[in-house]
């Protein structure tokens, strides 16, 4: 029995193609502006003069991120009406019939997973494609990835398979929420902080 569903994300393999994001939008009919899964482009570094020419010291990689269905879901802990709840298998849901639309949880979630949905006038977010998962299939984003950079499963098993890493630059301190997330870092992640990397595509995420 799954006690905590989780995502695996291979940052070393992710091309930033956004097929995952689009699969999510199509499944959930998300209007433009509403992203449950989105792809951050992290970039930093610069150029150095070497003799007569310039050489790059650029770092760059992509992070595809949805909701991490955290074990300590601060979103729900801070919701005044308990509209966010966690299922037996760890999936975190927003109850759109109860949500008052105060948008407080949006501030609380360090992964910016919660997004206001102007159609329902409530917040909304990734529901782990629970219908598909309940039927034994993969979430739409996982099934979409042309680079096979996404996987899902029980957190404990994913950790066994892919290791314990759950944070790369510039993701927040994982102890804040205990995200159900396993990451394989891109080679540049280790140098990102020192090269003053930042998310480079704000208007897209």
């Amino acid at each position: 029995m799954v006690t905590q569903y989780a995502f695996f994300f291979n940052a070393a393999a992710c091309s930033g193609c956004k097929a995952c994001q689009m699969a999510c939008k199509d499944r959930n009919n998300l209007e433009p502006g509403l992203l449950w899964r989105r792809v951050y482009e992290v970039a930093g570094g610069g150029w150095e003069k070497k003799g007569e020419v310039w050489v790059p010291s650029v770092v760059a990689y992509n992070i595809s991120m949805a909701c991490n269905h955290c074990e300590k879901p601060v979103c729900g802990l801070s919701c005044p009406v308990k509209a966010i709840w966690k299922r037996e298998d760890g999936i975190v849901f927003v109850d759109t019939d109860r949500c008052i639309g105060c948008r407080y949880c949006e501030w609380a979630c360090p992964y910016t997973a919660l997004r206001f949905n102007a159609t329902t006038n409530t917040v909304s977010k990734c529901d782990f494609c629970f219908e598909a998962v309940d039927a034994g299939g993969p979430p739409a984003c996982v099934a979409a990835c042309p680079q096979r950079a996404l996987d899902f499963g029980d957190l404990a098993e994913l950790r066994k398979k892919y290791g314990e890493t759950r944070q790369i630059f510039p993701l927040p301190d994982p102890s804040l929420t205990d995200p159900a997330l396993v990451i394989k870092p891109h080679r540049d992640a280790a140098r990102a902080a020192e090269r003053a990397a930042e998310v480079a595509n704000w208007e897209e995420v």
Binding site: L77, P80, V81, C99, I100, T122
Partner: peptide
Amino acid sequence: FHLHHPFRARYVLSNLRSSWLSREI
């Protein structure tokens, strides 16, 4: 005016156990 579902405001005291927003109210 800041709520998008003001009529559901009656629930706001539901989460005194962990929500400072509930407590504030």
